[in-house]
Structures are given as structure tokens and as C-alpha cells.
Nucleic acid binder design. Sequence first.
DNA 1: GTCGTATGATACAACTTTGTATCATTTGAC
DNA 2: GTCAAATGATACAAAGTTGTATCATACGAC
Lengths: 177, 177
Amino acid sequence: MEHEKLLHLLAAELARQPRASMEKLATAVGVSRATLSRKFATRDEMLNALAAQAVLEYALALERSRIEEDTAEEAIRRIVGNMLPSAELYRVLESPDCHDFPALDAWHPYKQKLLEMHYLWQERGELRVDLPAVWLYESIFILLRGAAAMVRNGQLARADAVNAVCTLLFAGIRRQS
Amino acid sequence: MEHEKLLHLLAAELARQPRASMEKLATAVGVSRATLSRKFATRDEMLNALAAQAVLEYALALERSRIEEDTAEEAIRRIVGNMLPSAELYRVLESPDCHDFPALDAWHPYKQKLLEMHYLWQERGELRVDLPAVWLYESIFILLRGAAAMVRNGQLARADAVNAVCTLLFAGIRRQS
DNA sequence: GTCGTATGATACAACTTTGTATCATTTGAC
DNA sequence: GTCAAATGATACAAAGTTGTATCATACGAC
């Protein structure tokens, strides 16, 4: 199986069953334990590979989203759209199991860049300043992960997920009068 | 240690380290493994006790929130305020490890009631109808759990958490012009 | 102080998980 | 068809986890 595809399947299964053994994970993604062990000698190595892939996709999605262009809303809509496919992977970035993985060092500059963009959007008067920027930043990913989980469970259509997140972010749940 | 306090500490530690062994959990919450084993003979029994406590607090918070009174916004603000202290516990309700625990049977009616309230709020024109009610419902808990995690990590002040969630829910992240 | 209860320490067997190795089979390129 | 690479099946020892039991100590009520 292709390496990237394998990582996505593993991330999805880990989101479902964080306590699954390597054997259960292997079966769930459709390979034997032997093969999984060949790709990742240890569980930590696997998690690190997931973190590395997460950083890669985070960075790529950020670049593609051209966050310096247009309004905050348009930029964030692009971010949500570009990051939704990797939402399951991002869980690894936040997981306390992985907080000292080498792959995470490469992530912090990108996270910092997006966080600082939030400060800028606040200064520009585009994002509200009565909530901490870190909450605005995190709420995007909180909703992204939540929406991805609902898509996985069949509670939300994949095609609706980006709109569900963005509408909530920019208009809230209340019907506009 | 008091039973209820123990459950909350366990829920918090499980949120941090879902893969922690009973021994690690016991140490983290400040008891010996022997004591933890006496309270919960097996891990499943512990998870079921957590689920039962979660259902209890969910039901109590729902009742206290008097969701039939006032506007959707006021009712949901009360829900968020009343449920935030149990947010770590609610993770057990959604966890796929626990989907067939007996304690969850008691939960579904309460969840259903709150979900149906969302339909009513939509019909009344208080909540938007261009997003599925289940997304409106889940987004409350997604944000609650996210805010609780940030409080735990020291990224968000506990006193600000309810307002952060409710402001996002009802006004979004964009500065109002 | 005495008693019962709760706790911690330790031990142990059964079981699971992990990392590693070996061999047979399958797959795909040529 | 042939070959090399990838995969699956199986085995095994080391380590970790779990459920249980036992004993000694700490604590609180009285």
C-alpha cells in the first residue's frame, strides 16, 4: 500500500480507537502486522511518521491557502477547505503522547505563522478582539476535527463539512433576522 | 478519595493519555494501583463508572438549564455554563471504546431531548436552518470539549471559557461592524 | 486507646503487546 | 516465465498489563 494512504488510514483508525494495538491497527487498515512492523519498527516510529505527515500537510495546506491575501474570512475559508482532508492527522500534533517527537519541531513555525496572522486580522479589525487570538485559532481546528469525526461517523456529509465549519465560525448558529 | 472527585481526575487524565495503563492512571490521580483496583475491578468497569457519572451530570446540567424557557441563546448559554465542568467526562460518552456500555442506555433519552430542542429552536426561527440540527448540537459539545482541553493546558482561563464558547456560537469570530 | 475501614506495598499468574526473525507466497516489472 | 521486492503467516522471547490475593500500616470514629 502507498505510504501516504497508509498514514491516513492509520490516523483515522487511531482517532476511532486510540488504544488499539499494532495488530488491531494493522488489521483495521488492511495489512498484516508483519507489514506494518516493516514500515514502522516501533509504535513511536509510527506516531512520529504520522506527525511528520501531519506537519507536511499542514504546511502545504497553509501555503495553498495564501493567508496573506484577501480578507480574513476568505483566507480562513481556504484554510478550512485545504485542511479538512488532513484533520484526522492533526490530532497527532496535539496529542500529549507525541509532544516530544522530533517531527513536531518542524511544525511550530507554521503554527506560529498562522497564529500571528490571527493577531494581524484582529489588528486590522477583521477578527473580534474580545476573545483571545489563540482561542480563535484553536476553535478552527477544534471544529475541523469535530466535523471530520462526524463525517467519519456518517452524521455529516463530507460535502457539507467545510460550509458547516465556516458558517459557524463566521455567522454562529443563530438565524440572522 | 471521594468517588466523584476520583472520576473527574480519571476523566481528565484519560483525556490527556488515553493509552495510559491502570497503574499510570492511578499514579496520575494520586492513589495506588491497589486502591484503584478496589474501586473498579476492571478497566471496563472504570470506564462504565465514568460513563454513568457522565450521564448523571449531563442529565443534571440539562435539567438545571431549563432549556424550555427563554430564548435559544439564553438556554444554550445556561447549557454551556452548566456542562463545562463535566466536559472531560462527556468524552467517554462519545468514545468508541464505550459504545456498548450499559450506562450509555440511560444517556440517549437526554441527548435526544436536547437534540429535539434544537429542531424546535430551528422551527421557531431562532437557530439557522441551513445547517443540520445535529451539527448545531454537536458543535456545542465539540467547542465545550475543546475549551476544556485548553483550560487544562493553561491556554484559556477557566473564567473565560463559557464566554469564549458562547460568543463563538452566537456571533462567530468576525468583528461586528 | 480500640476498632473497623481504607490505603499502600508487594507478589504472582494469566494474558497481551511488542520487537524481531524466518520462511513461504504473492505481486509486478521486465 | 523469471526475478526481485513486498507481503502474509508463524514463531518466539522480552516486556508490559491485568486481575487477584495477602500483609502491614495509616486514618477516623468512637
